[in-house]
């Protein structure tokens, strides 16, 4: 015996399916809309912000420069005038205003080198760091304290007091050696004169090819 009710319902199966269809389609219209978050998710940005890898200290930087580590790019985000006055050896100038210039963006949007951003302190560099992170650029670091800190620690390291621990003296001698490398003449320490660093041509960057979302020829 066939269930009569079932038969009755089944005879309406197409209208029922059609109704489900319309409800689903209508649901899309009625669902509340929200703006989609573009770029990196806020949580991920927070994780990156608090990561110790975000900052690089001046001592680390001095090490990198002296060892001529080829895997780093130094990006000066100050304006051109300041850049011409003084900058780190081999630095590239990308003023904050022109951060997304097409010719310059290849220094930032790549995954072969570590990028160190710096400005006078770390304020502008931090802003550049956040902007670039939003665009999912990789391997970005900020020079902690910027060029001021660089000057105070490496170029003109404070002489440790006699009652300070031994490691401070070690640090001082390391910094002193570093500053000599960067052209500070000792023992005329009072002079504090910094030779203009030799600017060599910035290294050749292989820009990351923007990952095409699809092969160009899709479909048929």
């Amino acid at each position: 015996m066939i269930n009569r009710n079932l038969v009755k319902v089944l005879s309406f199966r197409y209208p029922i399916i059609a109704a489900i269809f319309l409800i689903l389609a209508g649901g899309l219209v009625l669902l509340p809309k929200y703006e989609k978050q573009k770029g990196i998710a806020p949580q991920e940005l927070l994780n990156k912000s608090t990561s110790p890898e975000r900052y690089i200290s001046t001592d680390q930087l001095a090490d990198i420069i002296i060892n001529q580590d080829p895997s780093y790019i130094f990006v000066d985000v100050r304006d051109e005038e300041s850049f011409n006055k003084y900058t780190l050896p081999n630095a590239v100038n990308i003023p904050l205003k022109q951060l997304f210039d097409e010719d310059l963006v290849m220094y930032l949007n790549q995954d072969q080198f570590d990028v160190v951003l710096f400005s006078n302190d770390n304020f502008y560099a931090d802003q550049a760091w956040i902007l670039c992170n939003r665009l999912k650029y990789k391997n970005l670091h900020v020079l902690k304290g910027g060029l001021n800190e660089w000057y105070n620690t490496i170029i003109n390291p404070p002489f440790p007091n006699e009652n300070m621990p031994a490691q401070d003296f070690e640090l001082f001698s390391a910094r002193k050696a570093a500053s000599m490398y960067f052209g500070v003449a000792y023992p005329e320490q009072a002079k504090k004169e910094v030779k203009a660093p030799i600017k060599t041509a910035p290294k050749k960057i292989v820009p990351v090819k923007k990952k095409k979302k699809m092969p160009v020829e899709g479909g048929c």
């Binding site: 269809f21 319309l22 209508g26 899309l28």
Partner: peptide
């Protein structure tokens, strides 16, 4: 809006 388009398409289809 794409959602309205879908709704219209669904009606046309039915």
């Amino acid at each position: 809006s794409p959602y309205w388009l879908i709704f219209i398409f669904a009606i046309i289809a039915i």
